[in-house]
Nucleic acid binder design. Structure first.
Lengths: 312, 312
DNA sequence: CATGTTGCTGCCGTTTCGGCAACGGCTATA
DNA sequence: TATAGCCGTTGCCGAAACGGCAGCAACATG
């Protein structure tokens, strides 16, 4: 099912690999063939598509425009293929997800497991990275669905849903704070805390609040892994900060306690966005998973709001 | 700039013309070439794309799926072309509009004239037809922007905006009703009326109301042209019904009077929708006109609401 | 200076494409 | 019922496009 000109595919491969010879290796063709197709494309467009550096190729402005078009074509071709396949009852394909770490503890594994239980032929690729990298993966067409902190997103992405979760302190069962219902930042800073490094969005949520306090915070542990911070908290090393999404299992076991943060009477929100390339129609099997993801996150948001009503 | 496989274009032409030989004439190639490309496509997809009738070809289900993909590709190619062209400052292209008759009197000619004044290189194609035909034109990719009565629209279209206008009676200056501020349907039916035929949406707006009345309406003139009905009303032949959009010029001349309909104390709304194919990004020059169209219709809606506040 | 990598270009065999003419199937018309 | 006019398809053949191979100059790295 390759009814698109080879030039399209070659261009796409060159853009991804950043080099003609590398693209040729991936495509299993001679590099001369790839080179010629690119030259032919540039001749037809009437403008160079790549800047030739000694170390490889970089897209020009026109090249980026063509890349956008080619991505639209290839992604829509994927959707067409899945549409045809689903006619004969074969629901198969790969859902590619890029997301931040908060989801890896329970949300994503639960969802994927349950989805695979129903649709065995659908496979998954997941990549965990920072929020801005998630958005970039989507823009570059390397992922189908992205979950990231809801910052400003580029116009070529569409925010499918926005869910807000309370940021809270996470402490071991035996921690002096564990009996409280909510905590303030000051109360936490009286104990050793496990701080997020700037690459985690939690840092940017808490830093402005910490800056407002008069006291200098206790010397603390710093980390860039939510998983690690959670495990440290479980071992009683200190107070960690994150949303309830990441401590589902351990809090059910009773090892960890989640205490919603109370900042001068109002909650501290962590906004989670679900993103998709705007200029694109998802294949049926991808869209199906997306719907479940949105529903599940909505459900968790609702449950959390019920458990910790945003009192003032 | 033809970097897409000929099969794509041939398929598109065959779908539009409904025949291989007709497509070949349009494409200036031998019919055998077209036939072969179609056969090759069907072989690659693994399923027939057309049903061969004696009189030509009809799309199969898989064929319609491919048609959707091909339309997405070709329309996005158009956008890419315009993006590249706008880099060199050349804003040129053709905006294709399908709309219902209500817009032809002032909205559309005003907008097109003013837009052409600013962007000389942008040309227009407009086709006036019934609401359902407008939507179909859009779905088939024969128009870029559609304006129709806001009924239920197929899922492959996106409603960019929804504007509501009051339906009213239109009478000549000398008509006995002309002095009133508003009129009820009963008051109108006391005079000869110019009725819309079922092909016009006005018919479907008024028919349910007329059916509720006890009296049998006066024998009346029936027509399927808003233009004709307006001119008949201007000549004092009877009372016509339409929105204020269509009588801009003649009411400014004082020849015609617009009287908002009052149906048991509430207005009768005529909902106008602006539509675009959902799976598509418009070229810059088309989007620019679309924005103006939405703004202008919003402006008229606002002005009309100010002139005839929806009293109860 | 040697080595490795990059993109590009003749040369040439293979594949694909398109034009021409002819065939069988069908419809409408005389 | 015969005929003329469509229709899509197929064999044949020249032309164009494609891809592989080997070699080129330019540049970076050690």
């Amino acid at each position: 099912m390759r009814f698109h000109s080879p030039a399209i595919q070659y261009f796409h491969a060159v853009r991804r690999t950043g080099s003609i010879r590398a693209a040729a290796r991936v495509l299993n063709v001679a590099s001369s063939a790839v080179s010629r197709q690119i030259l032919k494309l540039e001749q037809e467009v009437g403008s160079p598509l790549f800047e030739r550096n000694a170390r490889g190729l970089t897209l020009t402005t026109v090249g980026e425009m063509l890349a956008r078009h080619v991505m639209n074509v290839l992604q829509d071709l994927d959707r067409f293929r899945s549409d045809v396949a689903s006619l004969s009852g074969a629901w198969s394909g790969t859902v590619s997800i890029a997301c931040i770490e908060s989801l890896t503890e329970s949300v994503l594994p639960d969802l994927i497991a349950s989805h695979r239980g129903r649709a065995r032929r659908v496979s998954f690729t997941t990549e965990v990275k920072g929020s801005s990298d998630v958005l970039e993966s989507l823009s570059r067409g390397e992922a189908d669905i992205g979950i990231a902190m809801a910052l400003r997103h580029p116009p070529d992405l569409r925010q499918v849903a926005l869910k807000r979760f309370r940021l809270g302190a996470v402490v071991a069962r035996e921690h002096p704070l564990a009996r409280r219902k909510t905590v303030t930042l000051e109360q936490c800073l009286a104990f050793p805390v496990i701080n997020a490094l700037p690459e985690l969005s939690i840092y940017h949520l808490l830093q402005p609040l910490i800056a407002q306090l008069s006291e200098t915070p206790e010397p603390a542990i710093q980390a860039n892994s939510i998983d690690l911070m959670r495990e440290l908290a479980a071992r009683g090393v200190g107070v960690a900060f994150q949303t309830q999404l990441g401590i589902n299992r351990l809090s059910r076991d009773g090892q960890l306690v989640f205490l919603p943060l109370d900042n001068a009477g109002s909650p501290v929100w962590s906004d989670l966005g679900i993103y998709v390339r705007a200029e694109r129609t998802l294949p049926a099997y991808t869209d199906s998973f997306l719907q479940e993801l949105v529903r599940e996150l909505g459900e968790r948001e609702r449950r959390e709001n019920a458990a910790y009503p945003p009192t003032s």
